[in-house]
Simulated assay, not measured.
Amino acid sequence: MASPLEDDQDTPTPPQTRERPSLLIDIAVALLLLVADAVIVAVATMLFVMVGMGSAQPPRSSATTHSRDVPVLIWLVVWGVPAVAVTGAVVHARLRMPVSAVVQSLFALTCAFLAVIWTRMLLS
């Protein structure tokens, strides 16, 4: 008689663990993200300076209060970028890429700082 086929359900299955990416890949991804993040921060800072200088009143003009409605899309961009940056940092941490996670966390902090500055500028 032939032996019955063994059922796979009876044998315990080891939990699947994610393999950690190599440190070299982590550093390469972190360097690419660092360059991209630096470009984004530089462009945002230049936009801040250009828009701030463009909306500044001449020194001898009368200080009249004027209310400007800021479109919702601008608020979504100003506060959406830090939210996406935080999400990126969490994703890299979950992927067990510590160097990339640190780079993305610093970028998220920088984006939050710039968002506060943009908010102050838009509300003034």
Rank of each mutant, 00 (worst) to 15 (best):
A108P: 00
M97W: 01
G54Y: 08
R68H: 15
D26A: 06
V77W: 09
S105W: 06
L5I: 13
G54C: 02
H92W: 04
A2D: 12
V72L: 15
P4C: 09
D37W: 04
V78D: 01
S100P: 04
W79Y: 14
D26C: 08
A44K: 05
S124E: 05
D37A: 15
P58G: 14
V99I: 15
P12T: 08
P82C: 11
A115Y: 01
V84R: 06
C111F: 01
R20H: 09
S124R: 05
E19L: 03
V51H: 01
W75G: 08
P82H: 05
L123K: 03
D8G: 12
A93I: 01
L73Y: 08
P71S: 15
D10W: 10
V43K: 01
M46G: 07
L34F: 15
C111H: 02
T119D: 06
S22W: 01
W79T: 04
R68P: 07
G80Q: 03
I40A: 15
A93H: 10
T65Q: 13
T65P: 07
S124G: 09
A30L: 06
A89P: 00
V29R: 03
L31M: 12
I74L: 15
A89V: 00
V86N: 06
G54T: 08
T110I: 06
P82G: 08
A115L: 04
W75K: 11
R20Y: 03
E6T: 11
L106D: 00
R20C: 03
M53N: 13
V86D: 10
V116I: 15
R68I: 15
L33V: 14
V99P: 03
M46D: 07
W75Q: 10
A56R: 14
D7N: 09
V86G: 06
V81T: 11
S67L: 11
A101H: 04
L123C: 07
A30H: 05
Q57D: 12
L34P: 09
L23S: 14
A112I: 02
S62Q: 14
S105Q: 10
M53S: 12
R96F: 04
V49G: 03
A28L: 13
V35P: 02
V81A: 08
W75R: 11
L95P: 00
I25E: 05
V41G: 06
A30N: 07
A38C: 08
R94I: 05
A115D: 03
A2N: 08
V90P: 02
Q57A: 13
A38M: 10
P98N: 09
P82Y: 02
